[in-house]
Amino acid sequence: MLTVNGVEVIYSKVILVIKGISFEVPDRQIVCLLGANGAGKTTILKAISGLLKAELGVITDGHINWDNRRIDRMRPEEIVGLGVVQVLEGRRLFRHLTTEDNLKTGAHIRKDHAVKRDIDMVYELFPRLNDLKKRTSGYLSGGEQQMLVIGRALMAKPQLILLDEPSLGLAPMLADEILKKVKMIQTEEGTSFLLVEQNAKATLEIADYGYIMETGRIVFEGSAEQLINNEDIKEFYIGLSELGQRKSYREVKHYRRRKRW
């Protein structure tokens, strides 16, 4: 289980991005972080995976625990070793390598020899990749690339995958397919996910629990069902209301309150 407790992140010693956030990702669950651009979702993922330092970010307060071990002071490769793998936003694959070689790099930290079997497992999960295994990955389509980076993360045999905007730049159909695969991995492999998304509706369909973030704070949380059924959220994120003109979740809430009075 991953617990994030009162974490505060400052970039370049001056920009306060995360203003004390606490949440948790239980084992074998999909937890999603929703929120507008600039809310700090990606930053919190990087804080967990240890990549903040590369961008001059520092965790100034709070702590992050993974299976009762503090990981916020660890280097990225140590965190990967513990079974927490991040899938970066923007489909960062090793574009000169073939599909299969990309998958092999995913198994970098592993010492066992079952790598081939896991490659086959990934192919089973994404049959499209099997057809393209000798293709240079730079030539794959966007959806295929996204499948590949998720597959690559699976090769590390993670217990928790930090998945950053998998549907970014994909056609809605493809985005749905990717999210279905995520659900499949969770049920079949028992991997837990911390999923950052803009597409709230599709995400909440597969997630178990969700948090709404806004300008570095968590403003709302609840089970997926609660979130879907919450009027405010519906209106602002899911776009089910005709009043979807408000600028932020907070404004929507105030507006509603006013209306109730």
């Binding site: 995976s49 240890g50 990549l51 590369a54 280097r75 990225p76 490769e77 990967v80 070793g81 793998v85 991040q86 899938v87 970066l88 960062r92 694959l93 090793f94 574009r95 000169h96 390598l97 070689d101 092999k104 790099t105 995913g106 970098h108 930290i109 690559r152 993360a153 590390a156």
Partner: peptide
């Protein structure tokens, strides 16, 4: 070998290499 993959990973995308557990 694995070492070679790690080199290529660093070359192509060192951030992605880091999250793959490559130091």
């Amino acid at each position: 070998t694995k070492v070679g993959w790690a080199f290529i990973a660093i070359r192509d995308n060192d951030l992605a290499a880091k999250v793959m557990g490559v130091n």
